[in-house]
């Protein structure tokens, strides 16, 4: 085997990864240590978790959610997983297998919810029935089911695998529109309030490249394929723009997001209070909502009455729009 000439910054052993934003290379052991340290730093700085918390991790079968589950268990937290079957054809079938394999290999509890079996619809059908982009129906469905599963299961914290790239891309989009309401809510911790569990994002100091590397080094198999319904969405375009900046100026992405949290988010505190204070209860499920029926129940109402729509049909229509 041909060795890399690069050496680990810590031990001077052979490096397995270069991290330009740290201007350093790391071996496997010290790369994992760096990731653990970044997660601990995020947890402590933003008061995300406590040792006695009952944690529910939203798991998709992708690298980020499996990595955050692995990291939290590795750090000693009691964490169960929640997988939602979205019904996106083979992509969902394969994703579920990765989530199940991860859980069973480690003796962890994985809760599963099937949109089709339990609510009578899937994401392709919801996209067609509601005439909205698939990511909209998907996000609304997942958020509702994550919240209700966490509350009903008695979990004290809901964890998602949003990483630095995800958060920087959302911040970029919100800033392009100067959407103050969304900017005010773009925090790594959302406290529990009526109808909502506490939600935290322990990976906000780590990039998706680092999370892919974590999975490879730790031997975690994950869904490598991109969701076919996400192709061409704005989020990916924002990430590409930020990656172009990052390649010219390593560390820019972290500065953009983490300095927002330090310097800008405090100035926006309270700006989203008006929206949350005015919430009532959904007449169907009791979830918090600004209207009579919550967004999730509106999707269920429209989509469960619709004939099932194959993934391919939504994809071909989506490509035509872009």
């Amino acid at each position: 085997m041909v060795a890399s000439g690069s050496k680990c910054r810590v031990c001077k052993g052979p490096a397995i990864i270069d991290l330009p934003r740290h201007n350093a290379h790391f071996c496997a052991e010290h790369f994992l240590e760096l990731c653990r340290r970044q997660v601990v730093k995020a947890i402590e700085k933003f008061d995300m978790l406590h040792p006695d918390d009952r944690v529910l991790v939203a798991v998709s079968g992708g690298k980020d959610s499996l990595a955050v589950w692995d990291l939290l268990v590795d750090l000693g937290y009691q964490a169960d997983g929640l997988y939602i079957g979205l019904g996106i054809g083979e992509y969902s079938d394969v994703s579920a297998e990765f989530a199940r394999a991860f859980a069973s290999q480690r003796g962890l509890k994985l809760i599963e919810i099937s949109l089709r079996e339990e609510y009578g619809y899937d994401i392709p059908t919801a996209a067609k029935a509601t005439r909205r982009v698939p990511c909209s129906a998907c996000g609304t469905s997942k958020r509702h089911l994550f919240d209700s599963a966490a509350l009903e299961g008695g979990y004290t914290v809901l964890v998602t695998g949003h990483n630095l790239d995800d958060e920087a891309a959302v911040l970029f989009g919100n800033t392009l529109r100067w959407d103050v309401e969304y900017l005010a809510r773009q925090l790594p911790v959302l406290p529990a309030r009526a109808g909502f569990p506490k939600k935290v994002k322990p990976l906000v100091r780590l990039t998706e490249r680092e999370m892919a590397a974590w999975c490879i080094v730790r031997g975690i198999d994950y869904q490598v394929e991109e969701c076919p319904m996400a192709l061409g969405n704005k989020h990916l375009a924002y990430k590409a723009a930020l990656n172009a900046i990052e390649s010219e100026s390593p560390g820019s992405k972290a500065s953009f997001y983490l300095n927002f949290l330090d310097n800008m988010a405090p100035l926006l505190a309270g700006r989203s209070a008006a929206a949350t204070d005015a919430l009532g209860e959904c007449r169907s499920c009791g979830a918090p909502t600004t209207g009579d029926l919550c967004a999730f129940c509106r999707i269920v109402e429209k989509s469960s009455a619709h004939d099932p729509v194959p993934v391919e049909l939504v994809l071909s229509k989506g490509r035509g729009r872009r």
Partner: peptide
């Protein structure tokens, strides 16, 4: 870059016998 099942940095030298996988990392969910 994954070479023969092991992660390697971008400046690693490869030999003709190496099995190399370049894995994409960008995901579109938000």
């Amino acid at each position: 870059v994954i070479r023969n099942g092991t992660l390697v940095p971008g400046d690693a030298e490869l030999s003709v016998d190496d099995v190399v996988e370049i894995r994409p990392v960008i995901s579109g969910g938000s």
